[in-house]
Design a protein around this nucleic acid. Structure first.
Lengths: 241, 241
DNA sequence: ACTTCTATGTGCGGTAGGTAACTTATGTGA
DNA sequence: TCACATAAGTTACCTACCGCACATAGAAGT
């Protein structure tokens, strides 16, 4: 996992900033490498920085007292990790874990908060992203209640695929099970079915998306609701608003 | 359901405003009565007002294409309905339905946005509430995945009880089933068990909380996580921050 | 009182997913 | 190349919840 160099504008929030704000923030951004499994913050843990992923993907998940866990949302180069720093709470009652190794840019909490308080485009973008994240979490809630594991696996694969350039995900079934909040065996059979129809292939922690269309065909409506909301809130039009 | 008069400071967000801001907003607030079942906003629907409940409770829920539905969160006098208006998206991909009849104060979207843009205590409170709501939705997501209906019913009863003065909830099992995203029969048996141990009693849409301690004993950790986060973010200390 | 809703109770087969115990592959490093 | 760890596959059984059908019981109007 070599430290490939990325630029801050690989993150869509930073890229959408007017040049004046972008230039002002640039000196306050440092690139960091996130290895797989790194914990960005713990349950209730203090944060010194917010992180704008470029190639990394970070999962937000909750771990129960008995050790079982489930994901509520995930952030890639379309967002920011550490919303509690500008929402005012400082900490969140969940964990953020790197789900796909890669790069991110970090910004000191103080700088973030000062810039947020200016009320400019930066604040606008951060709040819109937060609303999109709320939709993602909400849809996870209803999907968890009403849909089958097969569909949720499709949703999860598509959400991850959207946030990774490549068609290959480095991810074991064990980890996916933790994200979806099901047993590893449940993932094995669901993934087996997807492999049988040629949608994906996988070996020992390497999942290849072979036929995205097949996944989109099988996935529940939840995926599209979230996708539409992200496009609406953070699509190409965010530049002019 | 007679229109009982309440004052804006029965809503905890409004009550926490410094007197200067409170006085400034007061002329822009009108009391409205919410009957049970009233739809505050529809999926993707435009909002002219935000609503600060005083005695009403509003559920946020999503309805699937096939008609099944599930709740992601609920708002009482501790919050505000219509966060999309200050988060920037304007609309949300869910519905808001009155779950318990009562009063609320509404504020024009424009006034809300202008006041929010000032960046004062009002903005501070709205963002903190939004973060608490995110926790509520997140915990609903993991609870839906990992816990049994019995526990979720306890959680739901406690969350509602916290937001209503009385020990009686006007609520049929059918409606509770829609909220929890389960069958009505599932609620019947779960509620029956709670009645057997003397925690609640109910007849035809009238649920009495007889022994709150029993509910708290049976409920999963999710309830307390949400409660702690609301207390932390919106507790008595919000006055001095 | 009688009908007619609406809310609740109950039983039964079906099924998705949980629990558990075990096997089979595919790395990886001594 | 052999040992060992990790990833994935398999099987058998169990339980919670669903879907459906139907029974009962308050409430509300005539």
């Amino acid at each position: 996992m070599s430290k490939r160099s990325t630029t801050p504008n690989s993150n869509r929030l930073l890229a959408a900033l007017p040049s004046e704000e972008y230039e002002r923030l640039l000196p306050g951004l440092q690139q960091v490498s996130f290895p797989l499994g790194e914990v960005v913050y713990e349950f209730g843990g203090h944060l010194d920085y917010v992180y704008f992923p470029t190639t990394a993907i970070v999962s937000l998940l909750y771990t129960m007292e008995n050790g079982s866990s489930a994901e509520m949302g995930l952030t890639g180069n379309d967002g920011v990790v550490g919303i509690a720093l500008f929402m005012g709470g400082g900490t969140m009652p969940n964990r953020a874990v790197v789900q796909s190794a890669g790069e991110a840019f970090r910004m000191k909490a103080k700088l973030l908060q000062d810039e947020f308080a200016r009320g400019g485009k930066f604040q606008y973008l951060l709040l819109r992203y937060t609303q999109a994240l709320i939709t993602q979490i909400s849809q996870t809630a209803v999907c968890n209640r009403l849909h089958a594991v097969d569909q949720q696996l499709c949703r999860w694969l598509l959400l991850s695929h959207d946030r990774v350039k490549a068609d290959e995900l480095i991810m074991t079934q064990e980890l996916i099970a933790d994200m979806l909040g099901v047993r590893r065996e449940g993932v094995t059979v669901a993934a087996g079915r997807l492999q049988d129809v040629g949608a994906i292939s996988y070996v020992r922690g390497h999942i290849k998306i072979l036929d995205r269309a097949k996944l989109e065909e099988k996935v529940c409506e939840c995926y599209r609701v979230v996708k539409n909301e992200f496009d609406r809130l953070l699509g190409s039009d965010i530049a002019q608003a």
